[in-house]
């Protein structure tokens, strides 16, 4: 997607063994996401997809191996990381008193988005949340909450987007729109790392997939990954 000179490594891991104190889930895994790359993480339930994502983000310590962000040890608090990486947060992470529109407003303002009012309007429209813009998160359906989280991830500028099963609870039409948008972002050199169970996401907006079906995982082309998901 990018020429060699433009290509820059965002996130990489070497010999990463993931798991919990008394249980190794998988590894060693080598992984690299550069500018404009699109990598999916696929596998059966319990194969360690979300654990790998959490380990890559430094939220769970790795049993062994190293992770780095732009060549330096990963630090979620570093300014570069916060500016570059947008992570779709977990389902329960909301401020109970803030409305849907105010959540988007705060994220946009927090990241210094110019003309954030228009951007909020456009995200509400894209995710079909305009009718519930003044609702509190507690009043939303689970699908609407998922849309709000995705909108909050996309409203801010980012070089690397990280999703954990973004397709969950979205209807097919919104999924399609969302994937097309991600494909457009990739053309603008935005990288994507996503855990997914949806073959359409692999086909439409990702290049390769890391299939976690054994200890070290296996890299496959997106079409092969999609077929594995459909089997």
């Amino acid at each position: 997607m990018a020429t060699e000179s433009e290509h820059r490594t965002h996130l990489e891991a070497h010999g990463l063994v993931i798991g919990y104190p008394e249980q190794t889930i998988c590894g060693p895994i080598d992984l690299r996401i550069g500018t404009g790359d699109g990598l999916g993480i696929i596998g059966s339930n319990g194969s360690g997809k979300s654990t790998l994502l959490a380990t890559l983000l430094g939220r769970i310590p790795a049993q062994s191996g190293e992770t780095a962000f732009r060549g330096l040890p990963l630090d979620e608090d570093s300014l570069d990381f916060r500016r570059t990486v947008a992570v779709q947060v977990s389902d329960g992470a909301f401020f109970e008193e803030l409305s849907v529109a105010e959540h988007l407003e705060m994220v946009a303002r927090g990241h210094g988005v110019p003309e954030w009012e228009a951007k909020v309007e456009s995200e509400l429209e894209f995710f079909e949340l305009t009718a519930v813009a003044d609702h509190l998160p507690g009043e939303l359906s689970s699908g609407q909450r998922r849309k709000l989280l995705l909108a909050a991830t996309l409203i801010r500028p980012a070089g690397l987007l990280i999703f954990d099963e973004p397709e969950q609870r979205l209807d097919l039409r919104i999924r399609q729109k969302f994937y097309e948008r991600l494909a457009g972002l990739r053309r603008d050199m935005v990288s994507i790392l996503a855990v997914t169970h949806d073959p359409a996401m692999l086909r439409l907006c990702l290049d390769r997939a890391l299939l976690l079906d054994g200890d070290a995982g296996e890299y496959v082309e997106s079409e092969d990954g999609a077929q594995w998901l459909e089997r």
Binding site: V87, V89, F94, V107, A152
Partner: peptide
């Protein structure tokens, strides 16, 4: 409470822990 116990909310807003 939410800001203190859910660091991902802070990250979503682009804020470091400090």
């Amino acid at each position: 409470r939410p800001a203190a116990t859910q660091p991902e909310l802070g990250l979503m807003l682009g804020l470091a822990r400090s």
